[in-house]
Design a protein around this nucleic acid. Structure first.
Lengths: 359, 359
DNA sequence: GTGAAAGCGCTAACAG
DNA sequence: CTGTTAGCGCTTTCAC
C-alpha cells in the first residue's frame, strides 16, 4: 500500500487537516510554503488517496453504475465507450454489470450497485419498463441509453429513427429515384415502425406515391433480408432503389440481388441503417445512416451528471440523429461520398466501431 | 439511503456486533433465535450493507480492475464478458477503465484503480511490455488477457495460435487437399508468425511440400485479403485450398475470387481464423477456428482470483485453443458441419458474439 | 452468546 | 493560516 495521509502529514510536520487541504485542492487557505512542503512529501512518499475512505466521508463515490443487458450486442460497447469518455472528463468511473436480459439479475445488479454507493445508474439497451422499487427509493438518478422496444419513455436517450430514415430516403430521392422500396424491421420494434413512418412521410413530402407492394416487413437479420429482397424482385415493376431498415438485412438483400444476377448499385440502388462496422468494409460499401451509439452514450452520461448535481429532474426522451454515410451501394457519384478518415487506432471515438485490425 | 447496520441492530434490540455477525454469515456463534430476529428486521428495513465501509475494515473491495486498451476492438467485449462472468461467481465486480493505447493514460488508469483499492488488475489486449512501477510496488496481482504483439510473457492468457492453425490445416488436408496456400498476417505480429509456423509444420507432418509461392503476407484487413488473393490467383498452378490468417482477409479473398469469376468453395476451398460474427452470416459461411476470447477472459479472471487468494505466484503464459467451426467455405459435406445452436438471446456465452438482432 | 469499543483513512466543522 | 477532533458504516478483537 502507498502512504496514508497521516504518514505524509507527519513526515511534512503538519496536521492531517492541513495535508488534506492541500492534497484535495480545498478552497481553505494554506500558506504557500506549507503547501509546497506537503506536496513534496506526498510526491516523495507516493501518496495515493484512499478513495474508499474519502467516499465514506464525502458521500460521493465518483462512480456511475452501468447496467448492460448484453455486452456483446453491437451497440453496447460504443455506448459504454461514450459513457466512459464523458465520465472521464468529470473524473468519474463507470461500474459495469451485466444483466443478461434477466429481470432478476437486473434487480440484483441494482442492489449491488447501490451497495457500492454509485451516484446514479445508466441502463444500456435495457428492455424493462420501469426502474425497480429499490432504485426509486434510493432516490438516485438513472437514465436509459438506447432503450429497446416500447415507446417513448422519460429519462432516456434514443436514436432519432424518424430523422435518420428521412436522411436516407431524401438522399435516394436526390439521386433521382422515384420508385423506392423499403425492407422494414419487425413491426414489434418501435424503431422499425418509426423508420417506416418516416419513409412514407418523406415520399409523400416529395410528391411520390406509396406502393404498398414495395414495403416488405422482415426480421432485422441477414436471411430475412435475402427473403425480403426476393419478394421485391418478384414484383412486375421493380423499384430503382431500396431503403433497407438495417445493415444486416441490406447485406442479405445484396446477396439476393447477386443470386438473381443483379448488382447494387448498378441495377438497384441500396441504402441502409446502422452503420455497422462491416458496412464500411464489404463491397459494395453500404450507404447507411449511423445509429449514433457513441453519442448516445455520451449524452446519457452528460444528462445523468446534470441530475447527480441536482440541476435537473426527470427528463423527456432525448433523440440523437445519426449521420448519413454516403458510400457505394447507393450509386452516388464519388464526389458526393462521405469523406472517411482511415484511422488505425482506436481513437476515432465518433465512429461506431474501432478499426483496429485484429487477431 | 437504506438503513444502516446500527439502525437494524437497534430495531432488533441487539448490538451492532451481533447484527454484523449474522448479516455477514460470520463463523462466530449467534443464537438461532437472535439470528432470526436480526434477519427479519434487516429484511423489513431493506438493509443493504455499505460495501465501502465494509471494505475499509476488511481491506477487501471485491473488485478487480480491468484496463482495456480499446473497448471497441472485436475481442475486447467477449473477453470482458468472460472476466465478468467469472467474477460474478465469486461475487466480485470488474471496474473497467480505458487506456486508448496510450501508455500515460494507462499509468493513470492504474493509479485510479489502485486508489479504489482493486484487489488485482487484468489488462485486456494490452500491448505494453511490463507493469508500471506503481503496480509492481503495490504488490497487487495482475494478468494479461490477449496481450498483443511481442512474445510469450508471464501472467498472460493468450490464444493457442499454433494449435488453432493446426486444426484448420488438418481439416483442409482431411478434406483431400494437397496444395494449400496461406495468406498470413503481418510478420510483426506474434500470432501471425505462429500461424505460419503451424501451417508449415502441419503440412510437413502430413508429408506435403511447402511451396513458398503459396504463402503471401498481408495485413489482417479486407483489402489486404483481396490483394493477397489476387497474387495467389496469378500463380501458374493454383492451390485447391487456402488457409487465411483471419476472417477479415478471408472475406477479401472471397471477394477477389468472385471478381475473378471463381467461387469458394467450388473452385477453391477456404478456411480462416477468428470466428468473427460475420463469418457465421455471409455466404459462403466461413469455416474458421475461433479466437476463444470469452474463455480467455474467464481464464484470466480465474487465475487472478487464485493470485488474490495468494495461492499462486507468477504464472507462465497460458494458451487457450479455439474451436474449429466447419461451415461452408471449406466445401466440407454438410454432415461434417459444426452444429450451431441458433440462439437469439445474449446467453450463448461460449460464443464470440451475441446474435441479438439489432437496431 | 453477546456487547463495548477501537479503528480503517479521510474530510470538515470548529477552535484557536 | 493551522490543528484537534468527530465520525462516515462497518468488522473484529477483547472482555464479560
Amino acid at each position: 500500500m502507498s502512504a496514508t495521509l497521516e504518514e505524509v502529514a507527519k513526515a511534512a510536520g503538519v496536521s492531517v487537516a492541513t495535508a488534506s487541504r492541500v492534497l484535495t485542492q480545498s478552497a481553505h487557505p494554506v500558506r504557500a510554503e506549507t503547501r509546497q512542503k506537503v506536496l513534496r512529501f506526498a510526491q516523495a512518499m507516493d501518496y495515493r488517496p484512499n478513495l474508499l475512505a474519502r467516499s465514506m466521508r464525502t458521500d460521493r463515490t465518483h462512480t456511475i453504475g452501468i447496467v448492460a443487458d448484453n455486452l456483446l450486442s453491437p451497440f453496447t460497447p460504443p455506448i459504454i465507450q461514450g459513457i466512459q469518455d464523458f465520465l472521464k472528463t468529470i473524473d468519474y468511473l463507470g461500474l459495469i454489470v451485466n444483466a443478461d436480459w434477466d429481470p432478476s439479475i437486473e434487480r440484483e445488479a441494482i442492489t449491488t450497485l447501490l451497495s457500492r454507493a454509485v451516484e446514479g445508474i445508466i441502463f444500456v439497451e435495457s428492455s424493462h419498463l420501469a426502474p425497480t422499487q429499490e432504485l426509486v427509493e434510493s432516490q438516485k438518478p438513472y437514465m436509459y441509453a438506447h432503450r429497446l422496444f416500447g415507446s417513448s419513455v422519460q429519462n432516456s436517450v434514443v436514436p432519432d429513427d424518424y430523422q435518420g430514415a428521412q436522411l436516407v430516403v431524401e438522399h435516394l430521392i436526390r439521386l433521382g429515384h422515384r420508385r423506392i422500396a423499403h425492407i422494414a424491421g419487425p413491426r414489434g420494434w418501435h424503431s422499425a415502425r418509426r423508420r417506416v413512418e418516416s419513409y412514407r412521410a418523406t415520399l409523400l413530402q416529395h410528391g411520390l406515391p406509396i406502393d404498398p407492394a414495395l414495403i416488405v416487413e422482415s426480421d432485422w437479420m441477414f436471411e430475412g433480408g435475402v427473403t425480403a429482397m426476393k419478394q421485391i424482385l418478384s414484383q412486375p415493376r421493380l423499384p430503382t432503389a431500396i431503403f433497407v431498415g438495417n445493415d444486416m438485412m441490406a447485406l442479405g438483400a445484396i446477396e439476393a440481388l447477386r443470386t438473381a444476377g443483379l448488382q447494387a448499385p448498378k441495377d438497384i440502388a441500396l441504402a441502409a441503417y446502422d452503420n455497422r462496422e462491416v458496412s464500411q468494409i464489404l463491397h459494395p460499401k453500404l450507404t447507411t445512416v449511423s445509429l449514433p451509439a457513441y453519442h448516445m452514450g455520451q449524452k446519457a452520461a452528460e444528462l445523468i451528471w446534470l441530475k447527480v448535481q441536482g440541476e435537473v429532474g426527470d427528463l423527456e426522451e432525448v433523440k440523437i440523429c445519426g449521420q448519413l454515410y454516403i458510400r457505394e451501394s447507393c450509386g452516388a457519384p464519388p464526389a458526393l461520398r462521405t469523406l472517411e478518415a482511415v484511422d488505425m487506432g482506436g481513437n476515432a471515438r465518433h465512429r461506431q466501431a474501432g478499426k483496429q485490425p485484429q487477431s
